[in-house]
Amino acid sequence: MSETPLLEVSGLTKHFPIRGGVIQQRVGAVRAVNDVSFAIKKGEVFGLAGESGSGKSTIARMVVGLYRPTAGTVHFDGSDVSGLIGSRDYRKQVQMVFQNPGSSLNPRRTIAQSVAVPLIFHDYPKAKIADRVAELLEMVELPRSFAIRYPHELSGGQKQRVAIARALAVEPRLIVLDEPTSALDVSVQAKIIDLLAGLAGELGLTFLFISHDLSLMRNFCSRVGILYLGRLAETGPTVDVFGSPAHPYTQALIGAVPVVSDEEAALKPSIPALSGEIPSPSRIPKGCSFHTRCPFAFEPCRQTDPVFTVVGQGHEARCHLLEERTASAATVPVSPVERSAHP
């Protein structure tokens, strides 16, 4: 734990103003991300899971510097880069693979032209660019001949490989994967995940993996954070978060995943199905933002926002039930499902 994390964000917040009226004045805000903190160790795959409106893509875009945070700091390899995000040096370290392979490649540029962009702008010797592009295509297991093709001549999986090759071009240390396989079929998804895992080992890459697919996360990430309405509800080692989810939302989320075997079905926490839908990030409920859907909500949940409670080694969750529990007895944490039997 003493090792410096590769990426550490603390108090990361992003509010998008809602403008309206005649002079487009600020009439409200979409609070997309609120006070999110996490650290990613070198060489690990950190997953951020959440449903729509959870702010996961906004976090990805802040980490790569597409959006400027409203508040919070970002440390990269120990140094504060909050002001440098978006600079050339930072971009050389942190790259991103987008969700939709159909729109992340320019339809009017050949594969080689797209992959060469980062090389050109990071002063790669001109004479060697063609070789480097071929080498990158080989790394993602595509034939060199694809260099002269256009995106529409490739399948979704092949396009995503090109996007990965392009992200690798400047030899970054951290790659943000924003739902890289959610637009792909499972048979293609498996191949892409396999490729990413291989590259991570080979090149010593670190991944921030954004997804709504919990089953995928269970298999790919070493640690995960569960987001709800722009806040982390729970974070910890994947095995622990999936094995003994502490937050009712995490439990419900895992419980709702459709699975393909009885073995998996047995692993799902039994929790009453959630009612209602995720509130809009422009109208976040007061107190614990999950209380409107939580089957175990009680009075404090409507009043105050819970703080993180440690429930295991590096495993924390933000829930009043857990706070109460640890306040009464500092013993082994019990999941709220059991706790709820006698509130």
């Binding site: 498996a190 396999d194 790919f220 095995v239 073995e263």
Partner: peptide
């Protein structure tokens, strides 16, 4: 067989062989 194999498993036992 391959298709079912490709679906990520909540048990964390996926192999990601793909097709």
């Amino acid at each position: 067989q391959a298709l079912i194999e490709c679906v990520p498993k909540l048990s964390g036992t996926s192999t990601f062989k793909g097709i």
